[in-house]
Simulated assay, not measured.
Amino acid sequence: MGRHFGQPRNAADEQHALQWIFSILGEPVPQGRFEDILRDGTVLCRFMNKIRPDLLPKFSPSDQPAKQRENIGFFTQAAQAMGVQGTDIFQTIDLYEQKDPVSVANCLSRLGGILQRDRPDLPAHGPKI
Rank of each mutant, 00 (worst) to 15 (best):
residue 121 D to F: 11
residue 26 G to D: 07
residue 85 Q to S: 09
residue 118 D to L: 15
residue 46 R to Q: 10
residue 110 R to V: 06
residue 86 G to N: 09
residue 15 Q to G: 13
residue 66 A to P: 04
residue 95 L to A: 08
residue 57 P to L: 11
residue 29 V to D: 04
residue 17 A to V: 01
residue 121 D to P: 05
residue 97 E to Y: 13
residue 66 A to G: 05
residue 27 E to H: 09
residue 43 V to W: 06
residue 117 R to E: 15
residue 117 R to P: 04
residue 109 S to I: 02
residue 43 V to R: 14
residue 101 P to E: 07
residue 118 D to N: 12
residue 117 R to M: 14
residue 32 G to D: 14
residue 7 Q to C: 08
residue 55 L to D: 04
residue 17 A to G: 00
residue 92 T to W: 00
residue 118 D to R: 13
residue 120 P to F: 02
residue 57 P to R: 05
residue 101 P to C: 11
residue 66 A to H: 09
residue 115 L to E: 15
residue 119 R to P: 02
residue 83 G to L: 06
residue 115 L to I: 07
residue 85 Q to Y: 05
residue 6 G to H: 12
residue 45 C to G: 03
residue 21 I to Q: 01
residue 70 E to L: 14
residue 86 G to E: 13
residue 75 F to L: 06
residue 94 D to Q: 05
residue 50 K to D: 04
residue 14 E to L: 07
residue 100 D to M: 11
residue 59 F to S: 06
residue 76 T to H: 10
residue 86 G to C: 03
residue 59 F to G: 00
residue 108 L to H: 06
residue 59 F to T: 01
residue 17 A to Y: 01
residue 82 M to T: 01
residue 65 P to W: 07
residue 44 L to Q: 08
residue 75 F to A: 01
residue 47 F to I: 05
residue 17 A to S: 14
residue 59 F to I: 03
residue 32 G to M: 02
residue 75 F to M: 04
residue 83 G to N: 07
residue 82 M to H: 08
residue 121 D to Q: 11
residue 92 T to Y: 00
residue 31 Q to R: 08
residue 44 L to D: 03
residue 108 L to D: 10
residue 36 D to F: 04
residue 82 M to P: 01
residue 78 A to M: 00
residue 24 I to R: 00
residue 20 W to G: 00
residue 34 F to A: 03
residue 121 D to W: 10
residue 65 P to E: 15
residue 82 M to D: 02
residue 4 H to R: 08
residue 68 Q to R: 07
residue 81 A to S: 14
residue 21 I to M: 10
residue 129 I to E: 15
residue 99 K to L: 14
residue 102 V to H: 12
residue 63 D to N: 10
residue 108 L to P: 14
residue 36 D to V: 01
residue 93 I to N: 15
residue 92 T to L: 00
residue 68 Q to Y: 07
residue 38 L to Q: 10
residue 44 L to S: 05
residue 106 N to P: 03
residue 68 Q to I: 05
residue 69 R to M: 09
residue 31 Q to T: 08
residue 24 I to F: 04
residue 45 C to S: 09
residue 60 S to A: 12
residue 108 L to C: 13
residue 62 S to E: 02
residue 95 L to K: 03
residue 76 T to Y: 13
residue 106 N to V: 06
residue 39 R to L: 07
residue 69 R to P: 04
residue 30 P to T: 05
residue 30 P to S: 09
residue 35 E to P: 03
residue 52 R to T: 02
residue 5 F to W: 15
residue 24 I to P: 00
residue 67 K to S: 11
residue 31 Q to N: 11
residue 53 P to N: 14
residue 93 I to P: 15
